[in-house]
Design a protein around this nucleic acid. Sequence first.
DNA 1: TCAATAGTGTCTGTTAGACATTATGGA
DNA 2: TCCATAATGTCTAACAGACACTATTGA
Lengths: 235, 235
Amino acid sequence: MRDRGVPSTSPARASSRRSSYSIDVILFTPRGKQLAALCVRAGDPRARERWILPYDEAAPGESLDEAARRIAREASGADPTWIEQLGAFGDDRRHPTNAPLSVAFVAVVPAGAVEGASEDRAWFGVSEPPVLPPRQRAMLDGALEALRTRMDHAPIAFRLLPAMFTLSELQQMYELLLGKRLHKASFRRALQAAFLVEPTDEWRSEGRGRPAQFFRFSPRKRRGGRRGVRFDLLS
Amino acid sequence: MRDRGVPSTSPARASSRRSSYSIDVILFTPRGKQLAALCVRAGDPRARERWILPYDEAAPGESLDEAARRIAREASGADPTWIEQLGAFGDDRRHPTNAPLSVAFVAVVPAGAVEGASEDRAWFGVSEPPVLPPRQRAMLDGALEALRTRMDHAPIAFRLLPAMFTLSELQQMYELLLGKRLHKASFRRALQAAFLVEPTDEWRSEGRGRPAQFFRFSPRKRRGGRRGVRFDLLS
DNA sequence: TCAATAGTGTCTGTTAGACATTATGGA
DNA sequence: TCCATAATGTCTAACAGACACTATTGA
C-alpha cells in the first residue's frame, strides 16, 4: 500500500510479444453505493477513445499470480488487497492482443488507496460499463459474479476496510459488494456465530448518533461445517 | 453416448507442438462407493510406467471447451455428460509438456458409459490417486473440490444417472459425490422444495423390498433466492 | 412370518427475518 | 427536548436433523 506512483511509461500493456496468452485483471473498488471497475485506454493509437481492461503478458520467470498483481499495481497505482484467478478465456471472441488465450483475474483495492480517473485510466460503475472488446466484456461479467459468490469463502469485504471498522461499515461493504440490502440484526447474529470479528476499546467519535464500537477482523476456529444439501440449480 | 471405440492411435497426447499451453481433463466416474479419476500412461517412452492425466493441445479453430470435450472423449471412449473449466495452472510445477501454462477442465461420465481399465488407461479411486506430475496433482485436488462445490449450481448428479431414477439412487449419487452420508427425509424435503424432479408412472420391479417410483429431472421456476449471508471463511 | 427397502409423519433445536425497544451521543 | 444512529430483545415462520412409523414387495 506504500507503493505509489504510476509509471509514466505506458502501463498495463504489452510492448512486445513474449507469450501467446494475455493476463487480464478486473480490478474493483468501492465508489459511492456500488463497485467500480478499472479501465485503461486502448494501446492501439487508432482506438485511443476505446476503453479496455488492463492486461499484459507474464514476464520471464514470473508466475501467473505475480504477473496479475503487477498488472493491477501498474494500472491502479496501488497493490490489490485481494486477488484470485477467474479462469481462462479462449473462445474466438476478440481480445485486443488477438491472443488465442487470456487468463483473467479478479481483484479489489480499497477506496482510499487509489487515485481517481486520469487521462489514461477511469473507473466505471459496474452498472454502466463502457463498451469493451467482447472477450473482456465476458470477463467483467464473470468477475462480478465470482466476486459475489467467493465472498462466502474469502475475506473480501474485510480487505476493503481499514484494520478497524464499525459493524455498520462492514454491513455497508457487504451490501455494496452483494448489491442488495441486508437485515441488521441477522447480519450481526451471523457475524457473531462465525467468530470473525472481535471488539476493540476504540469508539467512533464523529457523527451525531450513538457512537459505534470499532471491531477488527480476527477469524477463529469454526465448529461444524455447512448443514444440509443445497439445490440451487435455478436462480 | 453412442460414440464408442477407443482409437488405437495414441490418444490424449499431443503429437506436435501447436501452442504453448496444454488442456488437461480430470474425468470422474462413479465406481463403487467413491469417485474414480481417469489416468493414461505417460507418452514419454522413458516413463511408460508413470500415470498422467489426459491432456492435449487445442487444434486450430477449436475452442477451449471443444478441445476439452474431445480430449475427454478420446481418453475415455465416451462423451462426458458434464464438463466445466477448472482454471489455469501456470506456476512452475512440472507438467509433462513443460508448457508454461495448462488449462484444466473437470468432467464426469456415467458409470455404464465407459469401459474399464486397459493397457493404456486406468481409473483410480480418488482416495488412492497415483503419483502424478506436480501440476497435475494440484489439478486433481482442485477438481474434486470444485466438483463438490459446483453441485449446488450444476446438475452434476443428474448427469451421472439415467433419464429415470429412483430417489434412493439420486441420494446415493449425491452421497458418493459429496463423500458423506445424507439424511433421507431431509434430502427428499429439500428436493421437493426445489421442484427439481417429477414422478413418472414407472416403478422399479427388481429388488426384494417395496418397489420404488421412478423420477425424472425436470427443473421448474424457483421462488426467492438464497436467504441470509454466509460467513464460511474458515473450514 | 420375516427381511429389506420405500416413503411419510412428527417432534425439536436452530436460525433468518421482522419488529420493537433501549442506549447514547449531538443539535 | 428532539433527532439520529447503535445495539439488542423478542416473536414467528422456515427448516434441518432425528426418530419412528407405515407400506409393499420377495424369500
